[in-house]
């Protein structure tokens, strides 16, 4: 039997809404993965330390506050600085389409908006877990074309 993937689901910044993050965490759990939820209002530094200490393969960032353009790149930057180049980062919440290309260029590999079927998130996880060079520190430009 293959080992479960370890996935951190994190809420960066001053954002008190975590229904979406909990739905995603629950979906990943029910798909057989081990999900570490950080709780609300984490700093970029706290999130990166959690990913490091928990030896997570994936990091999911959720933001509904509008601060994603500030917080998400910071997390990616700190992951690379910490040498966590092979961690695969995905994101969700209220992320306008106009903002997405900038986040993809920070090597966030998927952005899921409201209305995304949970099955699609699992499909992304399964697909990307088998790809070798799409960590946050890899130069590859690949990203997941999400439906919402």
């Amino acid at each position: 039997m293959s080992q479960p993937l370890r996935i951190v689901v994190a809420k960066p910044g001053l954002d008190g809404h975590d229904r979406g993050a909990k739905v995603v965490a629950r979906t990943l759990r029910d798909a057989g993965h081990e999900v570490i939820y950080t709780g609300l209002r984490r700093t970029a530094q706290q999130i990166v330390e959690t990913v490091r200490d928990e030896d997570a393969r994936f990091l999911g960032l959720s933001s509904l506050s509008g601060a994603h353009n500030h917080l998400f790149p910071k997390v990616c930057e700190l992951l690379v600085a910490e040498g966590l180049n092979d961690v695969i980062v995905f994101a969700g919440g209220i992320i306008p389409h106009d903002d997405r290309s900038g986040l993809f260029s920070c090597k966030i590999r998927a952005i899921f908006g409201p209305g995304t079927p949970t099955a699609e998130i699992l499909e992304f996880i399964d697909t990307s877990a088998n790809m070798a060079d799409i960590g946050v520190g890899d130069s590859n430009d690949w990203f997941w074309e999400s439906s919402a």
């Binding site: 039997m1 479960p4 759990r29 057989g32 081990e34 959690t50």
Partner: peptide, 12 residues
């Protein structure tokens, strides 16, 4: 989970 093997680790 005894059913799926997944887990939500929330002690942190």
């Amino acid at each position: 989970s005894p059913r799926t093997g997944g887990a939500l680790l929330g002690d942190r």
